[in-house]
């Protein structure tokens, strides 16, 4: 089982973004790093200068680098951006919109979690057209993951194992809207919330985290307790999605669990301490509400992958 660091989804200042990846290159126990602005094309220019430096540093450290494409493409300059990215020589590109698939079909590429892959037929079709990696949507239960993995043995199937789950994307900017601004005149207010803007119900129940055009879970997905099941059914990589917490330490915890060097409970405790701003959740994997936590002892009677295969 390999570890992938997903792209930074939030609007981090360029220097912070660059330094984050430099440290990942130097210290993190991840095999693959996905780099690029996925959420909002207005942010893309800010990362232009640092991106080649980051890619170079990561590659020299032996990391596989994958470039991520934009999630929601409507503007001409966004189309041109996907086309330019897709022609990047020597690096794999992760399509996060079907326009990326259109540009990448026929050669090796990655399919990101914002493309709808829900079953083995779709995964198989994409694999036949060159998908070497498929990162699955957060809401997929273990039963579906197991079927998909079995259908595409040559393709690395990846599952989100840590971080806030991307739940929705829109052309409307909710960060701007919360401040009474419009998307075109947003003043980049999303920069104030490097883990997303907490959204609560009127009864003060935490609900989601807003990241500009994107809505993420308030809860932090955490599958350290299920990492061994996922490995057993053939999931090829776990995706760790960057939050402001110590992602080097997060990667270490997952590596230790996978290597049998730490007990799942030990890792879960460490991960909760690392990102205490939100409850940790694993409900999606069990076919329950994604915001819920299912204690593995309660997951009767067998690991979900086994019940799926029966």
């Amino acid at each position: 089982m390999r570890l992938t660091l997903g792209p930074v989804l939030f609007n981090w200042p360029a220097a912070r973004w660059r330094d984050f990846y430099f440290r990942i290159a130097d210290e993190a126990a991840v095999d693959t790093v996905v780099v690029g602005e996925v959420v909002c094309s207005k942010r893309t220019p800010f990362l232009a200068e640092a991106t080649p430096l980051v890619i170079d540093r990561l590659r020299r450290a032996g990391k596989e680098v994958v470039l991520a494409s934009l999630a929601l493409v409507t503007l001409e300059r966004e189309r041109r951006g996907v086309a330019a990215l897709s022609s990047s020589a020597g690096l794999m590109v992760e399509a996060n919109d079907v326009s990326g698939l259109a540009a990448l079909a026929g050669r090796p590429h990655a399919v990101g979690p914002l493309i709808q892959v829900y079953n083995e037929d779709t995964a198989g079709y994409l694999a036949r057209r060159g998908a070497r990696r498929i990162s699955l949507a957060a809401e997929l239960p273990a039963s579906a993951i197991a079927r998909i993995v079995a259908a595409v043995p040559e393709t690395t199937v990846e599952v989100l194992a840590f971080g806030r789950a991307p739940l929705a994307i829109s052309v409307r900017c909710y960060h701007a809207r919360a401040e009474g601004l419009s998307k075109d005149n947003c003043r980049f207010v999303c920069e104030r919330d490097p883990d997303g803007m907490t959204v609560e119900t009127l009864d003060r129940e935490p609900f989601v985290a807003v990241n500009g055009l994107q809505t993420l879970s308030h809860a932090c997905v955490d599958l350290a307790g299920e990492a061994d099941w996922l490995a057993a059914i053939g999931v090829g990589a776990l995706r760790l999605s960057p939050q402001t917490c110590d992602m080097v330490m997060v990667a270490d915890q997952f590596r230790r669990v996978l290597d049998g060097a730490a007990a799942p409970d030990e890792a879960l405790a460490a991960l909760r301490a690392a990102f205490p701003q939100a409850p940790h959740a694993n409900g999606f994997l069990y076919g329950r509400p994604g915001m819920s936590w299912v204690a593995r002892d309660d997951a009767a009677p067998a690991p979900p992958a086994h019940s799926a295969a029966s």
Binding site: A71, L72, L114, Q116, A137, A138, E139, A165, P166, L167, A168, I169, S170, V171, R172, V208, T215, S217, G283, F284, G287, R288, P289, G290, M291
Partner: peptide
């Protein structure tokens, strides 16, 4: 829908 259709998991996050 205010979210891009077919790309929204808000409902399953709350209800499964």
């Amino acid at each position: 829908c205010v979210m891009a259709e077919g790309r929204c998991q808000l409902s399953s996050y709350v209800t499964g």
